[in-house]
Design a protein around this nucleic acid. Structure first.
Length: 279
DNA sequence: GCTACTTTCCGGCACAGGAC
DNA sequence: GTCCTGTGCCGGAAAGTAGC
């Protein structure tokens, strides 16, 4: 068995036809059949159902396919890494909380792009919960989330530590007794922290408004629609907050870590490895 | 019977390893 | 260094199967 067998197996799985696979690979059809049979003999299992219209993967074939892809990916990575003209390139899809994307990432990503211009970055924003699921399902390669991830299949590194601040038009004993709160969507780590603090303090909000953008939340707070919880870095960057009052959240609610998480079984592309090293 | 598909068989070739 | 042998891969041809 060699890596070429995996390549032929992968192509046959994609084409679902031995003849077309052979044409595509510039091989004879009998050779493709032989290589697949070789794999089947090695793994002592049938990898394809053969029928008149072509071939389809058996359950064993479906299990083997991602492993074959992983092996081929690793070989490609090794070849790239060992080439003299090695320069990380390709797509890098990551995710981030809205607040982190707006406050911490512009400089970080700009600097990263300067060092690695060949890497095409794609950034998706969402709540900590959404991003964690996206990393688990390998929709994105990694994500900046708040707090611990608590999933065995994930690894992560702490990249920032954020001070949390309650912001409102007027913050006093009276307004904090029954405030109207403005928060990010459900699943947001900062929102959960905010709600926990409110409960602990015995503060019962009169109402809750959900928004999905930092600008939207800031606009509503400036308009006096309620109070919110932001990171100190977000407040520092925002304009027009001079007439708003701020109150730092006490320990253990603040400061909170921001982690960059990633799937510990995922293929590490040169682009992703460069990003991890950069962080 | 034709067509489109897969499998099997066989000879040729390349290469590695051992003997001399 | 040369020759022999074993092994593995390749391509071509033929055979088998089923739908139309």
């Amino acid at each position: 068995m060699n890596t070429e067998d995996f390549h032929i197996f992968k192509q046959a799985a994609a084409w679902q036809n031995i003849t077309k696979t052979a044409q595509h690979l510039n091989r004879t059809q009998s050779n493709v059949t032989a290589r697949i049979q070789h794999l089947e003999h090695h793994f002592q299992t049938q990898l394809f159902y053969r029928h008149k219209q072509g071939v389809t993967l058996t359950p064993s074939g479906k299990i083997l396919l991602p492993y074959a892809e992983r092996v081929l990916h690793h070989i490609q990575d090794a070849e790239t890494a060992l080439s003299d003209a090695y320069q990380p390139k390709g797509m890098l899809a990551i995710g981030s909380m809205e607040t982190t994307a707006a406050t911490r990432l512009p400089e970080l990503l700009s600097s990263f792009h300067s060092d690695y211009p060949e890497i095409e970055l794609s950034l998706k924003t969402g709540s900590t919960k959404q991003l964690t699921e996206a990393v688990l399902h390998r929709e994105i390669e990694g994500a900046f989330i708040g707090g611990e991830w608590g999933r065995p299949k994930l690894d992560g590194i702490e990249v920032f530590r954020e001070d949390l601040i309650v912001v409102g038009k007027e913050l006093n004993t009276e307004t904090l007794e029954h405030p109207h709160v403005i928060v990010f969507q459900s699943g947001c780590f900062y929102r959960e922290t905010f709600e926990k603090w409110l409960r602990e303090e015995g503060i019962v909000p009169t109402g809750m408004m959900e928004l999905n953008t930092l600008d939207g939340i800031l606009g509503c707070v400036k308009a006096g629609l309620g109070i919110t919880l932001l990171t100190k870095s977000a407040v520092r960057r925002a304009e027009g907050l001079d007439d708003l009052q701020q109150m730092e959240l006490p320990f253990p609610y603040s400061p909170v870590p921001t982690y960059f998480i990633y799937h510990n079984e995922a293929v590490v592309t040169p682009a992703f490895r460069s990003f991890l090293e950069y962080l």
